[in-house]
Write a protein that binds this DNA or RNA. Structure first.
Lengths: 334, 334
DNA sequence: TTGTAGGCGTTATCAT
DNA sequence: ATGATAACGCCTACAA
C-alpha cells in the first residue's frame, strides 16, 4: 500500500497540514517538527500523490505534444528539445501521433484538453482553416511549430521559410543555374512549406528567369514521391541542372534516383534540400541545405507554451529563429 | 469555467450518482432520465475530469516510456508502435529522454511511478545490474525493450540478437570473407548488443577462422566513432574484406569513411549493419542488414505492459520476435 | 431505479 | 506555529 500524507502525519504525531507545510515549505514549521516529519518521510519513502495534488491545484504539469509522425527525422530532433526543456521546468510530455490526419488531430486536441494538459505544442503538415478556428477557440493554450502564422493569433515558432527559400534559390542562380526544379510538399496553401514556393518564385522573378511550371511538382513529404518525380524529369527529358527539394528527405529521394540512373551529383545535377536534419550530413553526397535550429525550435516552442500557461506575456506571438544556408557536396557551380 | 458532474446533475434535476451512471453505464438508468442527462451532457459539452477519476479509481491510464534518445532513428520507429497501440487501449504515453544515463534513468523511473503511471516501457543502451535490481523491486510493472533477459524476471521483447549475429557472420563467411571486422557497441557485457559478439564468435569458431582481436572494436553507437575505427583499419593497414557493424548507423559511418578514402563498397570491402532502420534502404549503397520488426517491438512491448497492468498472465516473460537477414548492395561475394 | 454520503490524497482557509 | 476542515471532481456502497 502506498503511504499517504495521513500515514506520515500519524506517525509523526502531527496534523496533515503540518506535513503538507514541510513538503511544500509553504509556511513556517518549527525546526524540530520539521526534522521529525522529514525523517519519517525519508524512512517511509513517502511521495506526494501528484494526482491528488493536481485535483486541488488544477494543474497537471502535463504538456501535450501533437506531431504527425514520431519517427520522422525532423520531428525526432524537435522532440528532444521539447522534452529536455519541459523537464527543466518540471513538466511531463504526453506524446500523440496524428499521422497528419485532421480528424485525429481534432480528436487528440480534445482528448488532451480533457486530460487536463496545461498546454499543447502542435505540429502538423497541413494547417487547415478548420483547425485554426478550432484551436483559436480552445481554452488550453496552444503553440504551433514550423508555421509562419503572422496572420493568426496563435503563437508559433519557426524559421523564415520564405526568406530561406529565397536565399537558396538565389544561391543556385548565382551558381549559374537557370533550370531549377522545385519539389514542393503539397499543393495546398495551408500546408507546411508553401512559403518555400513564394521564395523560389521571387528569386526567379528578380533574375528574370521565367518560371517553368513543368519543373514544379509535389512530393508530399515523401522520399519515394520525390524519386518518382525525378524519374519523370528524366523520362520527359526535362531534367534541370538543379533541383530544390522542400525537405532533405525529398532531396535524397531525388539524388537516389539520379544516381540510380547514372547521373552524377552534383556534376550533372545539383540537388539541395531543406531543414538540415542529421541525415543531411550523413548521406553521401552531403546535402547542401537550409540549416534550421531544429532542437531550438522544440525548445522555444515549449518555453512559449510555459509562458502562456503562466500567463506571462510573450515578447512576440511569432518566434522566428535564424536559419543558415549550408553549402555541402550535393551542389556546385556550373 | 469547466462544467462538472455537479452542474450536469443540477441542470438535469438528478443526483450526481445518476449522472455518473449514465457516463459509465455502470448501473441501469431509466431511459427518460438517460435521455435527459445525455442531452444535457451534450449541450454543456461536459467531459469527466480524468484526474478526479484517476484519484478515486487509482488508475491514471498513463504509461511511461523511457528511452535513451528520441531522435534516434531506431527509437523513433519503436515509438510509433508504442504510441499507436497505446492509444488503441486508451492509454496515453509519457515520454522521457534519459540519454542512457544511469542516474537520469533511476530518477525518471522514480518520477514516473510517483506520477502514478500504470506501467513503464524501458529502453536503454546499457542495462546495468544496479538498474535491474532497482527495477525488480519496483511496484510499477516494467517491460524492457531489446534485451534478451532470459535470466532476469523482468519481461522483455526483442529479436534473438545472438542468432541474428550468428547468421550474419555466417553469411559473410559463406560469401568468401575471412577477415571480418566487428564493430561492437561497447565493452560492457550488460550493454545492448553484447550478444552480437557471441554470435560473431560462434560463427567464426565453427568455421575455424581464428579471431583477430585487432578487428574487434567499439563504436559506442556512434556513426563518428565507427568512421574513426574504419580510418584506423586503413591507417594500420589491416582493412578487412568485411565489416560487420552492430548498428546500421555505424555501418554507414564505416562506409562513409571507406568512400571518403577511395575504397569501393562493396567491391573492395563489404559492410553490413544491424536493425534495418528506414535509413538502411535510403542510404546508398543500400545496407545489407538484419531486419528487425521495429514497429512491432514497440507494439508488443506496450501490449505486454498492458497485460501486466491488468494482471493477465504473459504467455512468456521474454518475447522474441522474428528477424531476417536482408541482402542489399553493401555486401558481395568475393 | 434513484439519492445520500463517504472517501480518494492533497492544498488552503480558517481558527486556535 | 499548528490543527480542523472544507474543498477539488468523481465513484460507489448503502439506503430508500
Amino acid at each position: 500500500m502506498k503511504v499517504t500524507i495521513k500515514d506520515v502525519a500519524k506517525r509523526a504525531g502531527v496534523s496533515i497540514s503540518t506535513v503538507s507545510r514541510v513538503i511544500n515549505s509553504s509556511k513556517p514549521v518549527s525546526s524540530e517538527i520539521h526534522q521529525k516529519v522529514s525523517s519519517i518521510i525519508e524512512e517511509t519513502g513517502y511521495v506526494p500523490n501528484p494526482i491528488a495534488r493536481s485535483l486541488v491545484m488544477k494543474k497537471s504539469r502535463l504538456i501535450g505534444v501533437l506531431v504527425p509522425d514520431v519517427s520522422n527525422f525532423f520531428i525526432g530532433e524537435i522532440l528532444n528539445g521539447i522534452e529536455e526543456i519541459g523537464k527543466m521546468y518540471n513538466y511531463d510530455i504526453i506524446l500523440c501521433n496524428t499521422y497528419g490526419d485532421l480528424e485525429e488531430e481534432i480528436k487528440y486536441l480534445n482528448l488532451l484538453s480533457a486530460k487536463q494538459v496545461e498546454g499543447i505544442v502542435f505540429m502538423t503538415w497541413k494547417l487547415q482553416e478548420k483547425l485554426v478556428n478550432y484551436i483559436s477557440k480552445m481554452e488550453t493554450p496552444v503553440v504551433l511549430i514550423n508555421r509562419n502564422s503572422k496572420d493568426l493569433d496563435i503563437p508559433s515558432v519557426s524559421i523564415d521559410n520564405f526568406k530561406a527559400a529565397y536565399e537558396m534559390t538565389n544561391y543556385l542562380i548565382e551558381n549559374g543555374h537557370e533550370k531549377i526544379a522545385l519539389i514542393r510538399n503539397t499543393v495546398d496553401k495551408d500546408a507546411f512549406g508553401f512559403d518555400l514556393y513564394r521564395g523560389y518564385e521571387k528569386a526567379l522573378k528578380e533574375h528574370k528567369i521565367p518560371i517553368d511550371e513543368r519543373l514544379i511538382r509535389y512530393g508530399y513529404f515523401e522520399l519515394k514521391k520525390s524519386y518518382e518525380i525525378t524519374k519523370d524529369f528524366i523520362d520527359e527529358n526535362i531534367l534541370p541542372t538543379a533541383i530544390f527539394a522542400s525537405s532533405d528527405v525529398m532531396a535524397i529521394g531525388a539524388i537516389n534516383c539520379l544516381l540510380d540512373h547514372g547521373y552524377k551529383v552534383p556534376d550533372e545535377v545539383s540537388v539541395v534540400g531543406f531543414n538540415d536534419i542529421n541525415l543531411a550530413s550523413i548521406y553521401r553526397p552531403n546535402l547542401t541545405t537550409i540549416h534550421q535550429p531544429i532542437y531550438d525550435i522544440g525548445a522555444v516552442a515549449i518555453r512559449m507554451i510555459i509562458k502562456k500557461i503562466n500567463k506571462e506575456p510573450l515578447e512576440s506571438n511569432v518566434s522566428i529563429l535564424p536559419h543558415m544556408l549550408i553549402e555541402r557536396a550535393s551542389s556546385k557551380r556550373i
